[in-house]
Design a protein around this nucleic acid. Structure first.
Lengths: 234, 234
DNA sequence: ATTTAATGTGTATTTTTAACACATTATTGT
DNA sequence: ACAATAATGTGTTAAAAATACACATTAAAT
């Protein structure tokens, strides 16, 4: 490590004092299952928060970009390579971690639980409904809330929810994801109208199967039109 | 510093390896002067970027929240205590700083250049027009751009530009800040209409002075109505 | 064949945004 | 004093977007 004393404009601290902070990354991995928005959590094994749910995170390695670190965590925990990931906020309270000074950068990720039958790394891992999650370890509830809020804003005018769905989906499923994320009810006719206008969907000329009612048409996301400006969903 | 080996799920690295990263905070301090959006910068004195403009930043101290660190920087550099400050993004590329592994969290701040005649800490400090700034030291141009983008989004539906103006201002000044921030022209009549509808302004029954034309009415920001939902400005 | 539970579709209303012109007022220069 | 200047102050109309809302259709289950 090279000298970095030139950083310190106010000389009370020596360089090595600044290296007593560790940096971690925490991933809020969202999925969609049974009509609910879920988050991937793990039982905490640190004594102060024993048994509480915590997010998936790890320390950033000295030779690793923080973005890479978050992809690494996702890969290690879910086996997924190509996922939607977005940095949200960095949490830096002095006492947020009982084990020492750890500043953490939070990301949220959107994955599709069904398609790949995720290879979870650990059977302590659990898809928990976002609505019903109570206290969590550390400041993870706060991190989760911040990420949900951000996800809601994002979803309003960016086509990201497709990451939560299988490749082929019905309009009902699509609407249902929006309703789960935004925690509200949407008008079916207006919803459909909006999506057709935005040109984000490709009609696959296939029908749902194994549904106990009239099957809906299946669509896929039209990646080519991704750039097209969105109208507000809700 | 307590043990934190329990973090490291994958044991190739020892704890102390994780403490070879330093964390800094960089502040993008925006001001408004002569009809332009400006940013407070300082000449860089690190050899790799000698003479280039850089943002104001410092390392985070081990016993300091990152938010506090950013307030500290503002206070030290501008003498200001009560300023608008918002975290934007954390930049964590491995080689972003030539002096070592330094991850930085960027904040933007909105200050009023005129009112207090800021006590700048250093005469290497300079209010530079945002439009005309070219390359900057480190990845600071990238950080600046990210913050401008965020400021634009923020301004669209939150009443934050008031922080850039003196307590008393005319509607022309207000519109002019929006135009500078959004880098566009706005329709004067629609602009006024929107602001009156949003109920964010208090008519002070005073007029501008020392203007070479018909003076406009002066207003102040109505903090009480702050919570009221905004309409899109542009 | 009937019931069930969902899909699929269009119009009218309201709200929001966008476009646009002229009289008024204080200052400046002659 | 007067004319010229350069800004303030004010409403209406048209277009676009968001919202509210009902009924026929289809496949599966009984």
């Amino acid at each position: 490590m090279k000298q970095i004393s030139r950083f310190s404009h106010f000389g009370e601290l020596s360089d090595k004092d600044y290296f007593r902070i560790a940096l971690s990354v925490d991933c809020v991995i969202f999925g969609f299952e049974e009509g609910e928005l879920k988050v991937l959590v793990i039982k905490c094994n640190i004594k102060e928060y024993k048994g509480m749910w915590s997010l998936l995170g790890d320390l950033v390695r000295p030779d690793e970009d923080i973005n890479s670190a978050s992809y690494r965590i996702l890969k290690e925990r879910t086996g997924l390579d190509d996922v939607y990931l977005e940095q949200v906020h960095t949490f830096g309270k002095v006492n947020r971690h009982p084990a020492g000074r750890v500043i953490t950068t939070a990301y949220f990720s959107l994955v599709n639980i069904k398609d790949h039958q995720l290879k979870l790394s650990d059977n302590e891992l659990h898809w928990h409904p976002v609505k019903e999650i109570g206290d969590m370890a550390f400041d993870h509830k706060n991190i989760l809330d911040t990420c949900i809020e951000r996800l809601r804003e994002k979803v309003e005018d960016h086509p990201v929810v497709f990451n939560l769905l299988p490749k082929k989906f019905s309009l009902r499923e699509l609407q249902s994801v929006y309703e789960a994320v935004l925690n509200c009810e949407l008008d079916r006719r207006n919803f459909r109208k909006k999506f057709f206008m935005m040109d984000w969907l490709v009609d696959l000329n296939e029908l749902e199967e194994d549904v106990p009612h009239r099957p809906g048409k299946l669509y896929k996301f039209n990646a080519a039109k991704f750039a097209k400006k969105a109208k507000k969903i809700s």
